[in-house]
Design a protein around this nucleic acid. Structure first.
Length: 246
DNA sequence: TCCTTCGCGCTCTGGATCAG
DNA sequence: CTGATCCAGAGCGCGAAGGA
């Protein structure tokens, strides 16, 4: 199409009424697929969205987590590609959501939404963790309770994550800032310990602003990981108490 | 009061068990 | 041995019950 024709159409569109533009959109939409999922499901995007709209709150809840994961893939991963990282996520189910690789090696990432309650981000008073008042929370645990037998025939809980299952925790800050592209990172090995052997606690405080434990820059977190520093988020007596439980 | 733990809707997968 | 069937575990987050 000649550039002038294209400009003419744009000009005509601007003069159309809302109804006319809607009719034109429908005509274009008839043979234009928005996303390949339409083909996978054999359903138009409008039907898929209506299904989500009708789904129970619990199902939509699930979707918010999946959206956070997709947002990481669509906003963070391409930006990191400019800085020498490539997506190296293997097929199948793993304790991590993404694996990124640069010339130094691979880094695994688990994405979680920061904890919300009644539509608002949870903010603790910090007492429990002995930290300054005002911390966001994140709940890094699997979503279904299960048990499995370990090597000694002992029954272990499968719901908690364990140290070493992922390198970096990426917390989506969408609930507090409304931006699906906003993530705050810390290291899996820095998270507070849970009750069981090698378990990560199911509740973790997240700094409201980047600090020495939490960063908004993935490269900084990768740097922390590769520096191999051994520590836990927060650095107080109460955290020491938690550590002593291990 | 605040923290911790559990269960839920929906769906898929893989392993165990059963019948033929 | 093969195919069918059953069931537990897992993916996702948040409300609510229970505990300190």
């Amino acid at each position: 199409m000649a550039e002038s024709t294209f400009a003419t159409i744009q000009h005509l569109l601007a003069e159309c009424s809302e109804d006319e533009r809607h009719a034109l959109f429908q005509a274009l939409r008839a043979d234009h697929q928005i996303h390949q999922l339409e083909q996978t499901f054999g359903a138009r995007a409008e039907v898929i969205l209506e299904a989500i709209h009708r789904a129970p709150e619990l199902t939509r809840r699930m979707l918010r987590g999946v959206i956070a994961d997709a947002a990481f893939a669509q906003s963070v991963v391409p930006a990191l590609a400019q800085r020498g990282w490539r997506d190296d996520t293997p097929d199948g189910n793993h304790a991590f959501d993404h694996r990124l690789r640069d010339t130094v090696g691979a880094v695994t990432v688990q994405v979680k939404l920061q904890r919300s309650e009644r539509g608002q981000p949870v903010v603790t008073n910090g007492r429990r963790f002995g930290l300054a008042a005002g911390m966001y929370m994140v709940e890094p645990q699997r979503t279904r309770t299960g048990k499995s037998l370990d090597g000694n025939g002992e029954e272990t809980k499968t719901r908690p994550y364990r140290y070493g299952e992922f390198d970096i925790l990426a917390v989506s800050l969408q609930p507090s800032c409304g931006d699906w592209g906003a993530f705050r990172y810390t290291l899996g090995n820095w998270l507070l310990p849970g009750a069981g052997p090698n378990e990560i606690a199911t509740y973790q405080p997240v700094a409201m602003r980047p600090n020495e434990d939490w960063t908004d820059d993935f490269d900084v977190a990768a740097g922390w990981l590769r520096a191999g520093m051994v520590k836990r988020i927060g650095n107080t007596n109460q955290v020491e108490d938690l550590l002593s439980r291990q």
